[in-house]
Amino acid sequence: MSMAPKHKQFGLRRSLKMRTMVGLCSAIMVLIVGWVLVPQQQGGAIDDADTQAIMKANFLFHFAAANEWPEEVKSGPFRMAIIGNERLFDELVDKYALKFIGAQSLEIVYYSSSDALAADVFAHLIYAELEGINLEALAERIANDPVLLVANSESALDRGALINFVAVGHLMRYEINAEKAAERGVLIGNRIMSWAVKSVQ
C-alpha cells in the first residue's frame, strides 16, 4: 500500500478525464483520415512498354549493322522496312533512326501490309509480321534482291525468311538461313551467326 497521501477530490481529475477523451476522439479521427489518405489499393500501374518490340528493335539494328550487303546497295540511306508492327516501328524510330550502318544512315519506313510495300523503293532489311502464304508471297517478290527478310512466325525459314525470331523458353532468340542469305548477296556476320539458335549453312 502506498505511503503517499492519496490525491483525493480535485477539479483536474475530471478535467484530465475530459481532455483525455477529447484527445482520444480527435486522435482516432486523425488516424482514420490519415489511413484513408494513404493509397489502399496499388502503387504504380504496369508499364505498358512493348517489351518484345524493344528487344526486336535492337536485334534488327544488329542484323543491319553486323551483316554485309553488296557494294551496289551501299550508297544512300540504309533502309529498314517494317510491315505490320507499328510499335516496333515507333521503337526503331525513337532509338535507332539516323544512326549509321557503316557509312549509311538508317532510314526506317512503315507499311501496314506487304501490298503497301513500294516496289520501286529498295529496303535492305524487311521485318514482316506475316505468316503462311503471305510470307511466301513477299519472299518471292524480293527473291532476286539483296534483302534480308526477317519474320516472326512458325516455319518462316521454310517460307522464305532469312532470319526468324523464335522463343527459346522465355527468351527471344533467332534462327538463320545463312545459305539462302548468301545466295541473295547478304553475308551473315560471325557475331550474328554465333548467337543464332539454328542456322542453315
Binding site: Q40, Q41, Q42, G43, G44, A45, I46, D47, A49, T51, I54, M55, A57, N58, F59, F61, H62, A66, K95, Y96, K99, R191, I192, W195
Partner: peptide, 30 residues
C-alpha cells in the same frame, strides 16, 4: 494489393532494364 503491387514492381523493374537498350548495346549485353 500486396500481391498485385509486388508483381508490378518486379515486372516494371524488368522493363526498366530493357528500356536502357539502345544502339550502343552489344549483342552480348542484349
Amino acid at each position: 494489393p500486396g500481391r498485385y503491387n509486388l508483381a508490378i514492381t518486379l515486372y516494371n523493374q524488368g522493363v526498366r532494364q530493357l528500356k536502357r537498350i539502345n544502339h550502343e548495346t552489344s549483342m552480348f549485353e542484349l
